[in-house]
């Protein structure tokens, strides 16, 4: 099915954000490489990440300026930069250790090589193989369940993702599974109207599993291409709420064997080390297939991504870099590190 290319082609073509020339004459996605006011994907990503880059490489360059020799002090300063980028204690220590070893073996003689080695090591941490997950059977919709703690931007991400699928000509159905937060259903309904997607909902306080079941039934009956299931934000430490998510997952699978095909965990880039705990626990409960990193347009460094990839091996697939409807982009490790270092 063509819309899979939206995600998977990026690997082979190395050009994220390139929409598939969808079957059935669907228009190409608006954010293809040559679109976007001539900025192109890299431009937009760099723009979105400019804060990250400024503070990161800015400091890095300042640090290396005029220094050719690698000293203990330099490594200490390097450690500071990594820490303040939210990269985390364990990952920072490992990054430092990896370059230190090379310095000791005289492989890294000058600061330029040190910089390159750091970049390579970060890239290595970020390179995660796509988790093999089931594909929908022919004629059945792709079902994506979207989960995360409160306030990370699940509903907004669903709206933006729905827009992407819609702009590829896919029929999209949204399931208003957040029946807890006041007006969450209304919020999703507005997104549905905005992007032209059906929204399946029940009253607030309804059983989210029942809503999911209805949603799946409607999706199958209407033969839509993609189903995005919204869920209520919940802290990963609430055992009963995590069980509720597992139940929703089970109910979806009962209605449509093999579904949900994907579970997206939405993480807020401003979050610190707790994001690792979130990823761990949501992954244990549901088997997260990809991570969406939102709010990268602020000053937060998003360095936590490196730690998550390294520790959990879950691929980061999408990033949110703004409030506009098409500000949801493909994550690509190479571009990400490039945008940070160049």
């Amino acid at each position: 099915m063509a819309f899979f290319k939206w995600k998977r082609d990026s690997k082979t073509e190395g050009a994220p954000g390139v929409g598939s020339p969808a079957a059935g004459g669907a228009p190409p996605p608006r954010d293809s490489r040559d679109g976007d006011q001539g900025l192109g994907f890299f431009g937009r990503l760099r723009q979105g990440l400019s804060k990250t880059r400024d503070s990161f490489t800015g400091k890095l360059d300042l640090l290396f300026l005029g220094k050719k020799e690698i000293t203990e002090d330099l490594l200490d300063d390097l450690e500071e930069i990594l820490f303040t980028s939210d990269i985390g204690v364990a990952t920072t220590q490992e990054l430092i250790a990896s370059v230190q070893e090379k310095v000791a073996r005289k492989e890294l003689r000058d600061t330029d090589k040190l910089k390159a080695a750091l970049r390579d090591q970060m890239l290595a941490f970020l390179k995660v193989d796509e988790v093999g997950h089931p594909l929908p059977h022919p004629g059945e919709p792709l079902v994506i369940m979207v989960v995360g703690v409160n306030g990370v931007g699940k509903t907004t991400t669903i709206g933006k993702a729905a827009h992407r699928f819609r702009s590829e000509g896919r029929e999209v159905l949204l399931v208003a599974g957040d029946t807890f937060r006041a007006a969450a259903v209304e919020q999703l309904t507005i997104w549905g109207e905005r992007v032209g997607a059906t929204v399946i909902k029940q009253g607030s306080g309804a059983d989210p599993s029942a809503v999911a079941f209805d949603g799946l039934a409607a999706a199958v009956a209407r033969k839509v291409d993609v189903v995005l299931v919204d869920t209520a934000g919940r802290l990963h430490t609430k055992i009963n709420l995590m069980e509720e998510l597992q139940k929703i997952h089970r109910v979806i699978g009962r209605k449509l064997p093999g579904a949900p095909h994907e579970v997206w965990l939405v993480l807020d880039a401003t979050t610190g080390q707790n994001a690792i705990s979130q990823a761990q626990i949501f992954n244990q409960a549901l088997g997260v297939t990809s991570i969406v990193l939102t709010k990268l347009d602020g000053t937060a460094k998003g360095g936590i991504v490196v730690g998550i990839s390294r520790e959990l091996g879950i691929p980061i697939r999408l990033i949110g870099i703004g409030e506009k409807i098409d500000d949801l982009r493909e994550f690509n490790a190479a571009d990400f590190v490039k945008a940070i270092f160049d």
Binding site: F83, N274, T299, A300
Partner: peptide, 12 residues
């Protein structure tokens, strides 16, 4: 402010 905020908490 979110208690889970990382290093950026101070900037914000």
């Amino acid at each position: 402010a979110d208690a889970m905020t990382g290093q950026d908490a101070v900037t914000v």
